[in-house]
Design a protein around this nucleic acid. Structure first.
Lengths: 193, 193
DNA sequence: GGCATCCGTATACATAGGTAAAGAAATCAG
DNA sequence: CTGATTTCTTTACCTATGTATACGGATGCC
Protein backbone atom coordinates (compact mmCIF):
# COMPACT_ATOMS: atom_id res chain seq x y z
CA UNK A 1 0.00 0.00 0.00
CA UNK A 2 1.30 3.47 -0.80
CA UNK A 3 1.56 5.91 2.08
CA UNK A 4 1.57 3.01 4.48
CA UNK A 5 3.01 5.02 7.34
CA UNK A 6 0.34 7.71 7.11
CA UNK A 7 -2.41 5.13 6.93
CA UNK A 8 -1.05 3.34 9.93
CA UNK A 9 -0.66 6.56 11.89
CA UNK A 10 -4.27 7.61 11.26
CA UNK A 11 -5.50 4.15 12.11
CA UNK A 12 -3.85 4.28 15.49
CA UNK A 13 -5.80 7.42 16.27
CA UNK A 14 -9.13 5.88 15.35
CA UNK A 15 -10.36 3.28 12.84
CA UNK A 16 -10.50 4.79 9.35
CA UNK A 17 -12.99 3.39 6.85
CA UNK A 18 -11.52 2.27 3.52
CA UNK A 19 -13.87 4.74 1.77
CA UNK A 20 -12.40 7.53 3.86
CA UNK A 21 -8.84 6.52 3.11
CA UNK A 22 -9.67 6.44 -0.61
CA UNK A 23 -10.62 10.10 -0.38
CA UNK A 24 -7.76 11.11 1.87
CA UNK A 25 -4.66 9.66 0.29
CA UNK A 26 -5.03 11.25 -3.18
CA UNK A 27 -4.69 14.65 -1.50
CA UNK A 28 -1.12 13.90 -0.43
CA UNK A 29 1.98 14.12 -2.55
CA UNK A 30 5.46 13.14 -1.53
CA UNK A 31 8.31 15.62 -1.40
CA UNK A 32 11.91 15.51 -0.24
CA UNK A 33 13.48 18.13 1.96
CA UNK A 34 17.23 18.20 2.28
CA UNK A 35 18.90 18.90 5.55
CA UNK A 36 18.65 22.63 6.20
CA UNK A 37 15.58 23.20 4.02
CA UNK A 38 12.52 24.92 5.44
CA UNK A 39 9.14 23.23 5.33
CA UNK A 40 7.15 26.27 6.41
CA UNK A 41 8.14 29.88 6.86
CA UNK A 42 6.89 32.53 9.20
CA UNK A 43 4.72 35.41 8.06
CA UNK A 44 2.75 33.41 5.54
CA UNK A 45 -0.59 31.67 5.90
CA UNK A 46 -0.21 27.95 6.34
CA UNK A 47 -2.17 26.10 3.69
CA UNK A 48 -0.69 22.61 3.78
CA UNK A 49 -0.78 19.83 6.28
CA UNK A 50 2.26 17.61 6.25
CA UNK A 51 3.16 14.16 7.42
CA UNK A 52 6.81 13.42 8.12
CA UNK A 53 7.60 9.94 6.77
CA UNK A 54 11.34 9.99 7.38
CA UNK A 55 13.78 12.28 9.11
CA UNK A 56 13.92 14.84 11.86
CA UNK A 57 12.65 18.41 11.80
CA UNK A 58 12.65 21.21 14.29
CA UNK A 59 9.88 23.75 14.81
CA UNK A 60 11.22 27.05 16.01
CA UNK A 61 10.21 30.55 16.83
CA UNK A 62 12.41 33.49 15.89
CA UNK A 63 11.94 36.72 17.79
CA UNK A 64 12.47 40.29 16.62
CA UNK A 65 16.09 40.19 17.76
CA UNK A 66 16.72 37.14 15.59
CA UNK A 67 17.08 34.75 18.51
CA UNK A 68 15.61 31.34 17.92
CA UNK A 69 13.71 29.10 20.29
CA UNK A 70 13.30 25.45 19.38
CA UNK A 71 9.75 24.64 20.28
CA UNK A 72 9.66 21.02 19.25
CA UNK A 73 11.56 18.26 17.49
CA UNK A 74 9.54 16.19 15.06
CA UNK A 75 10.74 12.64 14.59
CA UNK A 76 8.99 10.57 11.93
CA UNK A 77 6.30 9.38 11.78
CA UNK A 78 4.20 12.38 12.79
CA UNK A 79 2.20 15.30 11.47
CA UNK A 80 4.00 18.57 10.86
CA UNK A 81 2.97 21.96 9.52
CA UNK A 82 1.83 25.30 10.81
CA UNK A 83 -1.02 23.87 12.81
CA UNK A 84 -1.88 27.04 14.71
CA UNK A 85 -1.90 29.05 11.50
CA UNK A 86 -4.08 26.45 9.75
CA UNK A 87 -6.57 26.62 12.58
CA UNK A 88 -6.70 30.34 13.16
CA UNK A 89 -6.06 31.60 9.64
CA UNK A 90 -3.53 33.99 11.11
CA UNK A 91 -0.05 34.32 9.62
CA UNK A 92 2.29 31.64 10.77
CA UNK A 93 4.83 32.54 13.45
CA UNK A 94 6.63 29.20 13.52
CA UNK A 95 9.25 27.92 11.14
CA UNK A 96 10.10 24.27 10.50
CA UNK A 97 13.45 23.15 9.22
CA UNK A 98 14.80 19.75 8.25
CA UNK A 99 17.63 18.67 10.56
CA UNK A 100 18.26 15.60 8.43
CA UNK A 101 17.16 14.75 4.90
CA UNK A 102 13.40 14.27 5.16
CA UNK A 103 10.53 12.73 3.25
CA UNK A 104 7.20 14.49 3.66
CA UNK A 105 3.68 13.81 2.49
CA UNK A 106 1.92 17.09 1.96
CA UNK A 107 -1.73 17.95 1.31
CA UNK A 108 -3.63 21.21 0.89
CA UNK A 109 -5.53 21.71 4.13
CA UNK A 110 -8.80 23.13 2.74
CA UNK A 111 -9.89 19.99 0.86
CA UNK A 112 -8.55 17.84 3.69
CA UNK A 113 -10.75 19.62 6.21
CA UNK A 114 -13.66 19.60 3.76
CA UNK A 115 -13.64 15.81 4.04
CA UNK A 116 -14.65 16.11 7.68
CA UNK A 117 -18.23 16.75 6.53
CA UNK A 118 -18.55 13.41 4.78
CA UNK A 119 -16.06 11.43 6.90
CA UNK A 120 -16.79 11.63 10.64
CA UNK A 121 -14.00 9.14 11.23
CA UNK A 122 -11.50 11.60 9.77
CA UNK A 123 -12.84 14.41 11.93
CA UNK A 124 -12.53 12.09 14.89
CA UNK A 125 -8.90 11.48 14.03
CA UNK A 126 -8.40 15.25 13.84
CA UNK A 127 -10.10 15.68 17.21
CA UNK A 128 -7.92 13.08 18.87
CA UNK A 129 -4.82 14.52 17.29
CA UNK A 130 -5.67 18.01 18.53
CA UNK A 131 -6.31 16.61 21.99
CA UNK A 132 -2.96 14.86 22.00
CA UNK A 133 -1.25 18.04 20.86
CA UNK A 134 -2.89 19.90 23.71
CA UNK A 135 -1.87 17.35 26.30
CA UNK A 136 1.72 17.42 25.06
CA UNK A 137 1.77 21.22 25.24
CA UNK A 138 0.33 21.23 28.73
CA UNK A 139 2.96 18.78 29.89
CA UNK A 140 5.72 20.81 28.30
CA UNK A 141 4.42 23.98 29.93
CA UNK A 142 4.66 22.37 33.34
CA UNK A 143 8.14 21.08 32.60
CA UNK A 144 9.32 24.51 31.52
CA UNK A 145 7.92 26.23 34.55
CA UNK A 146 8.57 23.62 37.21
CA UNK A 147 11.89 22.07 36.25
CA UNK A 148 15.27 23.71 36.05
CA UNK A 149 17.43 23.37 32.96
CA UNK A 150 19.36 20.42 34.35
CA UNK A 151 16.23 18.35 34.88
CA UNK A 152 14.85 19.36 31.51
CA UNK A 153 18.09 18.13 29.96
CA UNK A 154 17.76 14.82 31.73
CA UNK A 155 14.19 14.50 30.44
CA UNK A 156 15.27 15.40 26.93
CA UNK A 157 17.86 12.65 26.94
CA UNK A 158 15.30 10.13 28.10
CA UNK A 159 12.77 11.21 25.53
CA UNK A 160 15.00 11.57 22.48
CA UNK A 161 17.93 9.24 23.13
CA UNK A 162 18.91 9.10 19.44
CA UNK A 163 18.66 12.82 18.86
CA UNK A 164 21.34 14.01 21.22
CA UNK A 165 24.19 12.58 19.18
CA UNK A 166 22.82 13.57 15.80
CA UNK A 167 22.02 17.28 16.08
CA UNK A 168 24.14 20.26 17.18
CA UNK A 169 24.04 21.02 20.85
CA UNK A 170 22.94 24.59 20.34
CA UNK A 171 19.67 23.21 19.04
CA UNK A 172 19.27 21.20 22.21
CA UNK A 173 20.17 24.21 24.32
CA UNK A 174 17.54 26.24 22.51
CA UNK A 175 14.95 23.54 23.11
CA UNK A 176 15.84 23.55 26.79
CA UNK A 177 15.53 27.31 26.92
CA UNK A 178 19.16 28.03 27.82
CA UNK A 179 22.27 29.17 26.00
CA UNK A 180 24.87 26.72 24.69
CA UNK A 181 27.12 28.10 27.42
CA UNK A 182 24.74 27.00 30.11
CA UNK A 183 24.15 23.59 28.53
CA UNK A 184 27.87 23.09 28.48
CA UNK A 185 28.04 23.87 32.20
CA UNK A 186 25.25 21.39 32.85
CA UNK A 187 26.96 18.70 30.81
CA UNK A 188 30.23 19.19 32.62
CA UNK A 189 28.51 18.98 35.97
CA UNK A 190 26.72 15.74 35.13
CA UNK A 191 29.67 14.19 33.29
CA UNK A 192 30.71 12.37 36.44
CA UNK A 193 27.56 10.29 36.26
CA UNK B 1 -33.96 28.35 27.43
CA UNK B 2 -32.16 26.66 30.29
CA UNK B 3 -28.37 26.50 30.08
CA UNK B 4 -28.46 29.34 27.61
CA UNK B 5 -24.80 30.22 28.10
CA UNK B 6 -23.62 26.68 27.36
CA UNK B 7 -25.84 26.45 24.30
CA UNK B 8 -24.55 29.75 23.04
CA UNK B 9 -20.94 28.78 23.68
CA UNK B 10 -21.25 25.51 21.76
CA UNK B 11 -23.04 27.26 18.93
CA UNK B 12 -20.19 29.68 18.49
CA UNK B 13 -17.84 26.75 17.98
CA UNK B 14 -20.02 25.16 15.30
CA UNK B 15 -23.76 24.97 14.56
CA UNK B 16 -25.40 22.46 16.88
CA UNK B 17 -28.54 20.68 15.69
CA UNK B 18 -31.56 20.91 18.03
CA UNK B 19 -31.60 17.11 18.21
CA UNK B 20 -28.02 17.17 19.42
CA UNK B 21 -28.73 19.79 22.04
CA UNK B 22 -31.67 17.74 23.27
CA UNK B 23 -29.26 14.90 24.00
CA UNK B 24 -26.52 17.07 25.42
CA UNK B 25 -28.18 19.31 27.93
CA UNK B 26 -29.81 16.61 30.11
CA UNK B 27 -26.31 15.38 30.94
CA UNK B 28 -25.48 18.62 32.73
CA UNK B 29 -26.47 19.60 36.23
CA UNK B 30 -25.84 22.90 37.90
CA UNK B 31 -23.73 23.23 41.02
CA UNK B 32 -22.42 26.12 43.07
CA UNK B 33 -18.84 26.40 44.24
CA UNK B 34 -18.05 28.91 46.91
CA UNK B 35 -14.89 30.94 46.79
CA UNK B 36 -12.04 28.69 47.86
CA UNK B 37 -13.76 25.42 46.91
CA UNK B 38 -12.00 22.94 44.63
CA UNK B 39 -13.66 21.79 41.44
CA UNK B 40 -11.17 19.03 40.70
CA UNK B 41 -8.36 17.54 42.71
CA UNK B 42 -5.08 16.03 41.70
CA UNK B 43 -4.38 12.32 41.89
CA UNK B 44 -7.85 11.24 40.85
CA UNK B 45 -9.18 10.33 37.43
CA UNK B 46 -11.19 13.14 35.92
CA UNK B 47 -14.67 11.94 35.03
CA UNK B 48 -16.62 15.15 34.60
CA UNK B 49 -16.56 17.91 32.07
CA UNK B 50 -17.57 21.30 33.42
CA UNK B 51 -18.81 24.57 32.05
CA UNK B 52 -18.23 27.68 34.11
CA UNK B 53 -21.37 29.82 33.92
CA UNK B 54 -20.36 32.46 36.42
CA UNK B 55 -17.23 33.34 38.34
CA UNK B 56 -13.48 32.96 38.13
CA UNK B 57 -11.41 29.84 38.75
CA UNK B 58 -7.74 29.13 38.66
CA UNK B 59 -6.11 25.95 37.39
CA UNK B 60 -2.89 25.22 39.20
CA UNK B 61 -0.17 22.67 39.49
CA UNK B 62 1.35 21.82 42.85
CA UNK B 63 4.79 20.27 42.91
CA UNK B 64 6.27 17.85 45.42
CA UNK B 65 7.59 20.72 47.52
CA UNK B 66 4.08 22.16 47.80
CA UNK B 67 4.78 25.14 45.58
CA UNK B 68 1.93 26.11 43.32
CA UNK B 69 2.00 27.31 39.75
CA UNK B 70 -1.10 28.99 38.35
CA UNK B 71 -1.45 27.60 34.91
CA UNK B 72 -4.57 29.41 33.83
CA UNK B 73 -7.39 31.65 34.97
CA UNK B 74 -10.84 30.63 33.81
CA UNK B 75 -13.32 33.46 33.42
CA UNK B 76 -16.91 32.51 32.60
CA UNK B 77 -18.17 31.45 30.17
CA UNK B 78 -15.76 28.63 29.35
CA UNK B 79 -15.17 24.94 29.76
CA UNK B 80 -13.26 23.76 32.79
CA UNK B 81 -12.23 20.37 34.14
CA UNK B 82 -9.27 18.05 34.05
CA UNK B 83 -9.11 17.97 30.30
CA UNK B 84 -5.76 16.20 30.02
CA UNK B 85 -6.87 13.55 32.49
CA UNK B 86 -10.18 13.05 30.65
CA UNK B 87 -8.30 12.52 27.41
CA UNK B 88 -5.48 10.33 28.60
CA UNK B 89 -7.21 8.45 31.38
CA UNK B 90 -4.20 9.18 33.55
CA UNK B 91 -4.59 10.59 37.06
CA UNK B 92 -5.15 14.29 37.10
CA UNK B 93 -2.19 16.51 38.01
CA UNK B 94 -4.06 19.82 37.92
CA UNK B 95 -6.28 21.33 40.56
CA UNK B 96 -8.97 23.92 39.98
CA UNK B 97 -10.17 26.27 42.67
CA UNK B 98 -12.91 28.89 42.71
CA UNK B 99 -11.47 32.38 43.20
CA UNK B 100 -14.96 33.84 43.46
CA UNK B 101 -18.30 32.17 44.06
CA UNK B 102 -18.96 30.15 40.92
CA UNK B 103 -21.80 28.46 39.08
CA UNK B 104 -20.83 25.36 37.13
CA UNK B 105 -22.67 23.01 34.80
CA UNK B 106 -21.18 19.57 35.15
CA UNK B 107 -21.64 16.39 33.13
CA UNK B 108 -20.12 12.92 33.29
CA UNK B 109 -17.65 12.73 30.44
CA UNK B 110 -18.22 9.14 29.30
CA UNK B 111 -21.82 9.63 28.11
CA UNK B 112 -20.90 13.05 26.75
CA UNK B 113 -18.18 11.57 24.59
CA UNK B 114 -20.44 8.66 23.64
CA UNK B 115 -22.69 11.20 21.92
CA UNK B 116 -19.92 11.89 19.43
CA UNK B 117 -20.87 8.68 17.61
CA UNK B 118 -24.39 9.84 16.85
CA UNK B 119 -23.75 13.61 16.80
CA UNK B 120 -20.93 14.58 14.43
CA UNK B 121 -21.69 18.21 15.15
CA UNK B 122 -20.82 17.66 18.80
CA UNK B 123 -17.59 15.92 17.88
CA UNK B 124 -16.83 18.84 15.61
CA UNK B 125 -17.34 21.23 18.53
CA UNK B 126 -14.97 19.09 20.57
CA UNK B 127 -12.42 19.14 17.78
CA UNK B 128 -12.56 22.90 17.44
CA UNK B 129 -12.36 23.32 21.20
CA UNK B 130 -9.29 21.09 21.40
CA UNK B 131 -7.70 23.02 18.56
CA UNK B 132 -8.34 26.32 20.34
CA UNK B 133 -6.89 24.92 23.55
CA UNK B 134 -3.80 23.88 21.67
CA UNK B 135 -3.36 27.26 20.02
CA UNK B 136 -3.73 29.02 23.37
CA UNK B 137 -1.13 26.72 24.93
CA UNK B 138 1.28 27.24 22.08
CA UNK B 139 0.95 30.99 22.43
CA UNK B 140 1.48 30.82 26.17
CA UNK B 141 4.55 28.65 25.70
CA UNK B 142 6.10 31.27 23.47
CA UNK B 143 5.23 34.02 25.93
CA UNK B 144 6.81 32.13 28.80
CA UNK B 145 9.98 31.41 26.92
CA UNK B 146 10.39 34.62 24.97
CA UNK B 147 9.16 37.34 27.31
CA UNK B 148 10.59 38.38 30.65
CA UNK B 149 8.38 38.67 33.70
CA UNK B 150 7.82 42.39 33.21
CA UNK B 151 6.42 41.93 29.73
CA UNK B 152 4.33 38.98 30.82
CA UNK B 153 2.87 41.19 33.53
CA UNK B 154 2.02 43.86 30.98
CA UNK B 155 0.31 41.21 28.83
CA UNK B 156 -1.59 39.84 31.80
CA UNK B 157 -2.96 43.30 32.58
CA UNK B 158 -4.09 43.76 29.00
CA UNK B 159 -5.69 40.36 28.84
CA UNK B 160 -7.43 40.26 32.22
CA UNK B 161 -8.02 43.92 33.11
CA UNK B 162 -10.71 43.08 35.66
CA UNK B 163 -8.80 40.28 37.32
CA UNK B 164 -5.87 42.25 38.66
CA UNK B 165 -7.89 44.15 41.21
CA UNK B 166 -10.00 41.21 42.33
CA UNK B 167 -7.53 38.45 43.15
CA UNK B 168 -4.49 38.36 45.45
CA UNK B 169 -1.22 39.35 43.86
CA UNK B 170 0.49 36.12 44.78
CA UNK B 171 -1.86 34.36 42.41
CA UNK B 172 -0.83 36.73 39.65
CA UNK B 173 2.84 36.27 40.52
CA UNK B 174 2.37 32.51 40.32
CA UNK B 175 0.71 32.84 36.92
CA UNK B 176 3.61 34.95 35.74
CA UNK B 177 6.07 32.39 37.03
CA UNK B 178 7.75 34.65 39.58
CA UNK B 179 7.58 35.12 43.33
CA UNK B 180 5.43 37.80 44.93
CA UNK B 181 8.70 39.50 45.85
CA UNK B 182 9.66 39.82 42.23
CA UNK B 183 6.21 40.96 41.14
CA UNK B 184 6.41 43.64 43.79
CA UNK B 185 9.72 44.81 42.34
CA UNK B 186 8.23 44.89 38.85
CA UNK B 187 5.22 46.86 40.04
CA UNK B 188 7.41 49.39 41.79
CA UNK B 189 9.54 49.84 38.70
CA UNK B 190 6.57 50.39 36.41
CA UNK B 191 4.64 52.53 38.92
CA UNK B 192 6.04 55.68 37.32
CA UNK B 193 4.13 54.92 34.14
C1' DG C 1 -11.33 49.92 69.89
C1' DG C 2 -8.01 46.32 70.05
C1' DC C 3 -5.94 42.22 68.52
C1' DA C 4 -4.79 38.62 65.11
C1' DT C 5 -4.24 37.34 60.48
C1' DC C 6 -3.19 38.05 55.86
C1' DC C 7 -1.03 40.36 52.30
C1' DG C 8 2.03 43.55 49.82
C1' DT C 9 6.48 45.58 50.07
C1' DA C 10 11.29 46.03 51.22
C1' DT C 11 16.04 44.46 52.14
C1' DA C 12 20.15 41.44 52.19
C1' DC C 13 22.15 37.81 50.36
C1' DA C 14 22.62 33.65 47.19
C1' DT C 15 22.27 31.46 42.72
C1' DA C 16 20.99 30.27 37.97
C1' DG C 17 21.79 31.71 33.94
C1' DG C 18 22.96 35.48 30.35
C1' DT C 19 26.75 37.96 27.50
C1' DA C 20 31.10 38.34 25.46
C1' DA C 21 35.25 36.64 24.04
C1' DA C 22 38.69 33.32 23.38
C1' DG C 23 40.60 28.79 22.93
C1' DA C 24 39.95 23.74 21.80
C1' DA C 25 37.91 20.32 19.15
C1' DA C 26 35.54 18.55 15.39
C1' DT C 27 34.00 18.72 10.69
C1' DC C 28 34.24 19.83 5.96
C1' DA C 29 36.06 21.41 1.39
C1' DG C 30 39.57 21.33 -1.86
C1' DC D 1 46.47 16.14 4.13
C1' DT D 2 45.66 20.93 5.14
C1' DG D 3 43.41 25.00 5.92
C1' DA D 4 38.81 26.95 6.81
C1' DT D 5 34.69 26.74 9.11
C1' DT D 6 31.73 25.26 12.50
C1' DT D 7 30.79 23.69 17.00
C1' DC D 8 31.77 22.99 21.86
C1' DT D 9 33.82 24.46 26.10
C1' DT D 10 35.71 27.61 29.29
C1' DT D 11 36.28 31.86 31.80
C1' DA D 12 35.08 36.42 33.69
C1' DC D 13 31.70 39.29 34.69
C1' DC D 14 26.81 40.83 35.18
C1' DT D 15 21.72 40.64 35.84
C1' DA D 16 17.35 38.74 36.99
C1' DT D 17 15.24 36.42 40.21
C1' DG D 18 14.90 33.21 44.27
C1' DT D 19 15.03 32.69 49.57
C1' DA D 20 14.60 34.34 54.03
C1' DT D 21 13.08 37.67 56.88
C1' DA D 22 11.11 41.76 58.62
C1' DC D 23 7.86 45.48 58.53
C1' DG D 24 3.58 47.96 57.84
C1' DG D 25 -1.03 48.42 56.24
C1' DA D 26 -5.45 46.34 55.57
C1' DT D 27 -9.09 43.43 56.95
C1' DG D 28 -11.92 41.08 59.94
C1' DC D 29 -13.41 39.28 64.44
C1' DC D 30 -14.68 39.95 69.27
Amino acid sequence: MPMEALHHFLHRLTPIAPATWDKVHPLFTEARFEKGANYIREGQLAREIGFLEQGVMRAYYRNAAGQEYNKHFFTAPCFIGGYASLITGQPNVIQQEALTDCTVLSAPYAPFRALFDSCPDLERAARILAEQFFVAKEQREIEIVQLDAEERYRLFRERYPELEASIPQYHIASYLGVTPTQLSRIRRKSAGR
